[in-house]
Design a protein around this nucleic acid. Structure first.
Length: 424
RNA sequence: GGAGAGAUGGCAGAGUGGUCGAAUGCGGUCGUCUUGAAAACGACAGUCCCGCGAGGGACCGUGGGUUCGAAUCCCACUCUCUCCUCCA
């Protein structure tokens, strides 16, 4: 959510910034109209309430019964008018808030302009797609040949885009998750384990609603939603709290499964484990001071890059352009790992500063100085990393001509020392 | 799932229709005293909204209702605690 004061004071500039992302600017005017209406109503109703409060207080002390009855009758009328106005205020407030919740975040000045994905800029690359000396197989072939991924039975149990990991496949994934968490702890993040289902307000707080309603799973009866990313529960960890400045910054890492309906077009990424309805992810998340959030974004990016590096995989970093930026973000880096079997760069991490966008929605504040007014803090999130795609990169990059897969050094301690995955 | 109790400021805990944004204690901040600290004493101190300001309004779990007036009365909901039952 944006700052309403910014909309009031610089509506044209806000629209200009929204236009950079290709987003509709009409909501700005709608919000301002509601805002004006709301404030007019408030002025009126609050004056009436002040009057009622004063008169009611006086009534309590009145001796003269006749005068008293007159005042009570008067206040009855005022009370009815107040109820009426209160209702109107509530309605306008709801309208205004809903409109505010739909407006996306503004891109940072440094975010390059662009129309879409094709205008993202590769700003860094480490390692090259190398010649493996044989024809690398895609991971789905490797997975089936080694008996570590079972697509058919996944579909049998749960439908399309679900799969089963078996034996060394399951173990590799578990090792990866644990290694990722341990690494992030080393990098200065403290681990949290959260619920995987959340209340609807948590989805609003993190900015998943209203935009991604169609991509979320929910339990209608219980009124709970399955998390599409750990970002959702972690964002809401300190919702409605006022943190002490001495507690900040807070860096968390969290493992969760992620559930996404992804009812997108058939035919895209249908093979393999690249895009499932359920996948695992380890997330890094920061609650920090507004004046240092862009420095923290660089740490986030560096930590994600370091994760790729330690796995011994070629990666590259892209700066997203305004046209591809997520709705909550002001500035984002995407990290991609090279997958030689599929011959493509796989997005495994997205590191974003969302400034106070989520903080306003979830009411995340801190007190800059003892006694000072609370302020919204800044939050950042970055995957570290998306597990299935990292699995793909590991399988395809570490495969050998006989289809066996070498276990990356860093994961071996988590695999009981196993160095190579071979057919069972 | 069954029975009971409860939800008030950072915490503890009063308050059962007006003088309550709310006693008291602890904690917190500032000051006096002190070489310093402690103690003692004094003062200050919640959040949100409207307003240039003066000031005004709202908030005692949430949402409704009664009333001129609700922390206080009524209804619904949510949550917490205790006991029982069940369960990984």
């Amino acid at each position: 959510m944006l700052d309403i004061k910014l909309l009031r004071e610089q509506p044209e500039w806000v629209k200009q910034q929204l236009a950079r992302t290709g987003s509709d600017t009409a909501l700005v005017d709608a919000v301002l109209a509601f805002d004006e209406q709301r404030r007019a109503l408030l002025t009126e109703v609050e004056a009436l309430k002040a009057e009622r409060n004063a008169v009611s207080k006086a009534i309590g002390k009145m001796k003269d019964a006749a005068e008293r009855d007159v005042k009570i009758a008067e206040m009855r009328v005022v009370g009815d008018r107040i109820s009426e106005l209160d209702r109107q205020v509530a309605d306008v407030e709801t309208d205004q808030r809903l409109a505010m919740l739909e407006i996306r975040n503004l891109p940072h000045a440094s975010t390059p302009d662009g129309a879409g994905e094709e205008d993202n800029i590769v700003i860094y690359q480490e390692g090259e797609p190398r010649d493996m000396g044989f024809e690398p197989k895609p991971h789905w072939e490797l997975g089936e040949a080694l008996g570590i991924i079972d697509f058919e039975r996944g579909v049998k149990i749960s439908g399309s885009r679900f799969y089963i990991l078996k034996g060394m496949g399951a173990r590799l994934q578990r090792a990866l998750i644990q290694w990722l968490l341990d690494l992030h702890i080393e990098q200065g993040y403290s681990e949290v384990y959260t619920p995987f289902v959340v209340k609807e307000e948590a989805m609003w707080g993190a900015g998943q609603l209203p935009k991604f309603r169609d991509n979320l799973y929910r339990d209608e009866d219980a009124g709970l939603w399955l998390v599409p990313t750990a970002e959702v529960p972690v964002t809401n960890l300190y919702a409605d709290e006022i943190l002490d400045a001495s507690q900040l910054p807070i860096f968390h890492c969290a493992y969760t499964p992620c559930f996404r309906r992804e009812q997108m077009s058939a035919g895209r990424d249908v093979r393999g484990i690249k895009r499932g309805h359920q996948f695992d992810k380890v997330e890094m998340y920061m609650f920090t001071f507004p004046d240092r959030s862009y420095d923290d974004l660089q740490k986030l990016r560096a930590d994600a890059e370091d994760t790729c590096r330690r796995l011994g995989l070629a990666f590259r970093t892209k700066e997203l352009c305004t046209g591809d930026l997520g709705a909550a973000a002001t500035r984002t880096y995407d990290l991609e790992l090279w997958a030689p079997g599929q011959q493509e760069w796989l997005e495994v991490s997205s590191c974003s500063n969302v400034e106070a966008f989520q903080a306003r929605r979830a009411n995340l504040r801190y007190r800059p100085e003892p006694g000072a007014k609370p302020e919204f803090l800044h939050t950042l999130n970055g995957s570290g990393l998306g597990v299935p795609r990292t699995m793909i990169a590991i399988m395809e990059n570490y495969q050998q001509a006989d289809r066996s897969i070498i276990v990356p050094d860093v994961l071996r301690p988590y695999m009981g020392g196993i160095a190579v995955i071979t057919a069972a």
